[in-house]
Design a protein around this nucleic acid. Structure first.
Lengths: 209, 209, 209, 209
DNA sequence: CATGAATGAGCATTCATTCAT
DNA sequence: GATGAATGAATGCTCATTCAT
C-alpha cells in the first residue's frame, strides 16, 4: 500500500541515514507518528494501546515487542522530536550569521516543527509532560536543555548586538509561549504564511533597525 | 477548623455576594478549588473521584450529591474561572482610560489570574480542554467569547490610537500564548514582580511612546 | 389536589372500613399504589427509593418513617393485594351456588384483579417474587395458600359435579398461567370484554353442558 | 475436566454444526448456559458480572472479551433460545401431518424447551424482558414473531379442520400462559411425564374427536 | 514476531440507609 | 414527620500487561 509520502528535508534525511531518528516509514517510525497524532487528539491517558495497535494495523499485545510499556512510547515520541528539532536548529543556525537573522531562523524552525509534520509530537511534548514518570522527565530534560541552550546563546548574542532589550531568559520564555500556542489557532490554509508569522513573532523580540 | 483564609478582593467578594460564583469557603467552592489544584497537578484523567473526596474530606460517593459526574466538576471549575476573570477584567477596564493603560490592565489581570489563586483553574482550562465532552465545550466557548471580546476590542482601540502595530487578532493570540505559558516558569518568590512582568509583556505589544 | 377518584366497590370499601387494607387515598395507600406501578414498569431492583419518593411527593429519606426498608414496601404491596383479592373471591363465591358458576366467578375475580386497579400489584406478585427475602416469602405463602384453597376446593366441587375432567390441582396450575399471562396481552380498550374473556377461559376448564 | 455431557438431539447438533447456535460446551456456550441459570435463579439485576465470571471460571473483566456489556449477554441468552426453539419446532412440524398432531407437537416442543435444558433461558425470556434496552427488545421481537407465526398458522389450520373452536390468537395466548407457567410448578421427578402433561394441555385447546 | 484470551487492579457511579437538623 | 447531606459497600466496566500458542 504505497502511500504518497512527503519528501523529507535533506537535513532530516541525513539524520535518518545516521540512525539518529527512525525513518518515518519504518515500523517504529509509523508507530511513533500514529502515537503522536493520537496522543495529541485524545490525550495520552485516553489513548488505549488498542487504539495504537489499530492505528498501525497490529494487535495491542504486539506493541510490547517494540516498546516495553505504554509510557516508553510516549517517551520515544518526545525524545525523537526534541532530537530531530535540535539538529534542524543547529543546521539552520549554521547557515546564518546576522544575530537578528539567527533569531528569525530559530523562530522559523520552531514554528515549522510546531505547525508541520512533527506538530503533533511537539504538542504532546507540552501537554503530556505529567504523564511521564519522573525518571523519564529527567532524561528528556537533558535533551531539552541542549535545545534551549541554542536559543539562549543566540538571544544573548542578539542582546549584545543591541537588537534585543529584554532579559534573554525572560524573552525566551515569553516567546516559547507565544510560539507553542500557535498550534491552537494557526491554520496552514489561511492567508498567513508560516514565514510571515515568523516575521511577526520576530517583531515581538527585536527592535526594528 | 478555621484556616487562615486570604481576604477576597472587593470585586471578587461582590461577585460572591451576587451569587455569580461560589464562595471559596463554601462546600462547593472548596471542592472546585481542590479539583482545580488536583486537575492541574495530576491531570483530570489521573485524578480519581476518591482523590477529590479525600481533598475535601468526604467520601467519593458524596461528591455526586453536588455534581452529577466527574466531568461536571471539571466543567464547573472552568466556568467559574472564566466568569470570575471576565468580571474582574471588566472592572479593571472601567478604571482606565488610556488605551495603553487598558492593555496593561488586561495583561495584569490575566497574569494575576494565571499566577494567583485561580491559577490552577486557568491551567486546567488550557490543558484539560479535551476532557470535556463536546456539549460542555460549546457551553464554555460561549463564555470564552465574551472574555476574548474584551481583549480584542481593547486591542483595536489601542491600534486606532497608534500604539499597536500588529493585527489585533494575531497579537492577542501571541500574547495569549506568552502569558499563559508563564505558569510554567514564573515563580512568585523570585525577584520579578507580577507588575514588572506585566510591563515587560506590554513591551511585546506596544511601541514605546 | 382532589383528583377524580374511582369509586371503590362495596366489598372493597367494606375491607377498608374494617382496616383490613389501606384506603387507596391514604398516605400509605398511595405509596403502595405508586410502588406497585413502578415495580411493575421498571422492576423492583431498577426502582430506586428516590423514584418512590418522587412518585408520592416526598424525599427518599422520609419513606423510612413509613416502612423500615425497601423490601418491606414490596412485601406490603404483595400482602395487601392477596388479602384484598382473597376477600373479594370469598364474597363472589358466596353469591353463587352452581359449581360451574362458581368457577366462572373465580375466573372473573382473578381476571378483574389482574386487569383492573390491582393489576400492577398482581404482576409484581408474580415477577418480583425472588426479590423478597425468604422470611417474607414464607409469610406471603401463607396468604397465598388461603387464596389457592378457595380455588382448589371450588374445582374439586366442580369435578365431583362432573363438569370438570382434569385433575383439579393441574387444572388450577394451567389456569393460573393462562390467566396471569393475560396481563401481557389483554387490552381493556379492545373489543373483547373481561366478561367475554372469562367465559372463554372457562371453556378451557369446563365441558359444555 | 470432562464433565458428563448430555447428548444433544440430532436436530440441535445440526444447528450447532451449521453455526446457528453456539455449542453448549464452547466457551461462549457455557457462559450463556451459566448466565441463563443465574439470571433465572437470582434475576438479571441481582446477578453480578463477578457471579457470571465465577460460574464459568474466569475473572469478571474477561467476560468483556466475549460480550461488550452485561446486557449483551442477556440478549444473547434470549436470542439463542428463540432461534434454537424455532428451528426445533420447524423440524417437529415437518414430521406431522394431522392438525391435532401438529398442535400436540408444538405443545410438546414448547414444554420440552421450558422444562428441559433451555428452561432457564426460556424463563429469562419471560421474566427479564424489561432489562433489555429498547433496541434489543425490537431485535428479539423480530425473532419472536417468526416463532409465534409457526404457532398461529398451525392453530388456524386446526381451526379450519374443525378441531379448534376458539379464536386462534386468543387460544395461543391462553396456551402461552398455561405452558410457560409450568416452569413454576412442574417437576420432572414427579409421576407426570412431559408427554402426559402435553396431552393434558392439548385438551384445553382441542375438542375430543 | 504476532496473536488474542485472560488477568486483576482500578475506576466512576449508584443507591439503600442513616441521622443531625 | 420531614429533610437532604453523607455514608460506604457494591456494581459494571476499562485497560495495560502477560503469556501460551
Amino acid at each position: 500500500m504505497p502511500k504518497h509520502q512527503k519528501q523529507l528535508s535533506a537535513d532530516h534525511q541525513a539524520l535518518v541515514d545516521q540512525g539518529v531518528v527512525n525513518a518515518p516509514d519504518s515500523a517504529k517510525g509509523r508507530l511513533l507518528q500514529a502515537a503522536a497524532t493520537l496522543f495529541k487528539e485524545k490525550g495520552y491517558e485516553r489513548t488505549t494501546v488498542r487504539d495504537l495497535g489499530k492505528a498501525v494495523g497490529i494487535q495491542s499485545g504486539s506493541l510490547f515487542h517494540h516498546y516495553p510499556n505504554k509510557e516508553a512510547i510516549l517517551r520515544a515520541v518526545m525524545e525523537e522530536t526534541i532530537i530531530l528539532n535540535t539538529e534542524l536548529m543547529k543546521a539552520a543556525l549554521s547557515q546564518n550569521n546576522d544575530p537578528a537573522e539567527k533569531v528569525l531562523a530559530l523562530i522559523r524552525c520552531e514554528l515549522e516543527s510546531i505547525l508541520g509534520d512533527t506538530g503533533a509530537a511537539m504538542t504532546v511534548l507540552v501537554y503530556e509532560w505529567r504523564s511521564l514518570k519522573e525518571e523519564s522527565q529527567l532524561e528528556i530534560l537533558k535533551l531539552r536543555d541542549i535545545y534551549e541552550n541554542l536559543w539562549i546563546s543566540t538571544l544573548i548574542e542578539a542582546k549584545e548586538s543591541g537588537r534585543v532589550v529584554m532579559d534573554p531568559a525572560i524573552l525566551r520564555r515569553l516567546l516559547t509561549g507565544a510560539l507553542s500556542w500557535t498550534v491552537n489557532w494557526y491554520r496552514q490554509e489561511g492567508n498567513l504564511s508560516v514565514e510571515q508569522l515568523a516575521k511577526m513573532a520576530l517583531t515581538l523580540a527585536i527592535k526594528p533597525n
